[in-house]
């Protein structure tokens, strides 16, 4: 990983100095090894604080939305899964492809520091992935832990190491983690009775503190003015008018991103209350697959998603009742 970090850094410096791009969107070292933050690097800032390690799970594609009217050109570092979001943003005209230089970077799965800590490991100073294991260096010495136990939730269902869009690749040979069935939990939820499911979501969503982190991190949530911030929409007042707060907020949000959500998992990654928000979106992904055929948002740019498309192969409305067994 350190080798790859250096390669990316050298290339970034080259791009900046040649004037090919005006800025690089990447990750900046945090206070600890496990808290890198997305940042914009320019000639002025230099790349001294740049980092790319096993804690760079953040999806950087959304950081370009604000640059759409800028005449500056930015390079952005995208892991394979992040490129789906980039395609979706291009499809929706929320970024200006002409002003973006996409560097696809290799990935071997990113780690969830909370999971590592939950295994009783603290004082983390460094990590290195060694096949199926992760060696964690701490101020108390070195520990080894199974990689599959400490992967970010979104990496557990990794969709492989292919970058769906890029201008150049660095370190693409890295092996991404083996994926498990991403609909496993959705199937479980579907098997529940309505009451059980309601109880499940009530338990999860009642922890929501409406910090808006999910919305702000979500690459599909790019509305200029969100309906929840628009007093005139009348929707903000409806969001919490229920017996457990915020259920409507998350359901409305899931509806708004349905068929546009690439299942990147950022919503759940950033949730400070560890609410499995991605399951709402994944339920829609599964329904869309079943109703309209396999569809992956962001598989390529300029796709037309099944919810804004009509065709004579479209499912008949009766399928809804059929599916419920009526």
């Amino acid at each position: 990983m350190q080798g790859l970090e250096k390669k990316i850094k050298d290339r970034a410096i080259e791009l900046l100095e040649s004037g090919k791009v005006d800025g690089i969107i990447g990750w900046e070292k945090g206070q600890f090894i496990y808290d890198p933050t997305p940042a914009v690097f320019t000639k002025e800032t230099g790349l001294d604080n740049f980092c790319y390690n096993n804690f760079c799970g953040a999806n950087l594609s959304k950081y370009l939305v604000g640059k759409i009217t800028s005449d500056k050109k930015y390079a952005v570092l995208l892991k394979p899964c992040d490129t789906y979001s980039m395609n979706q943003l291009i499809t929706e005209h929320r970024v200006n492809r002409d002003n973006i230089y996409i560097i696809g970077v290799g990935c071997e799965g990113h780690l969830d520091v909370e999971k590592i800590k939950r295994n009783g490991i603290s004082g983390i100073t460094g990590v290195s992935v060694d096949g199926e294991n992760v060696n964690v260096g701490t101020i108390y010495g070195e520990s080894t832990i199974a990689k599959s136990d400490v992967l970010l939730g979104k990496c557990e269902v990794c969709r492989g190491n292919a970058h769906k869009i890029s201008d150049e690749l660095i370190g693409e040979e890295l092996q991404t983690p083996e994926a498990s069935d991403r609909f496993e939990m959705v199937n479980k939820l579907e098997a529940m009775t309505a009451e059980e499911r309601f109880a499940f979501w009530k338990g999860e969503l009642s922890r929501c503190i409406r910090c808006n982190a999910c919305r702000n991190a979500c690459p599909a949530c790019t509305c200029r003015v969100c309906v929840f911030d628009n007093g005139r929409s009348g929707i903000d007042s409806k969001a919490n008018a229920s017996e457990f707060e915020e259920q409507m907020f998350h359901i409305i949000r899931a509806f708004h991103v349905s068929a546009r959500c690439t299942d990147c998992g950022e919503c759940s990654r950033v949730c400070p209350e560890n609410i499995p928000l991605h399951l709402l979106n994944r339920k829609y992904v599964k329904d869309i697959n079943e109703f309209y055929g396999e569809y992956q948002a962001g598989e390529e740019a300029d796709q037309r998603n099944p919810l804004v498309n009509f065709g004579d192969k479209d499912i008949d409305p009766t399928v809804i009742s059929d599916k419920e067994g009526n």
């Binding site: 929706e92 929320r94 003015v225 037309r304 998603n305 919810l307 804004v308």
Partner: peptide
């Protein structure tokens, strides 16, 4: 116009081709 993000959802769904950009 102040709310429009230009995302093309409406353009794609319009069955009459009535929306442009």
């Amino acid at each position: 116009e102040l709310l429009c993000s230009g995302c093309s959802n409406c353009f794609n769904i319009c069955p009459y081709g009535a929306i442009g950009y």
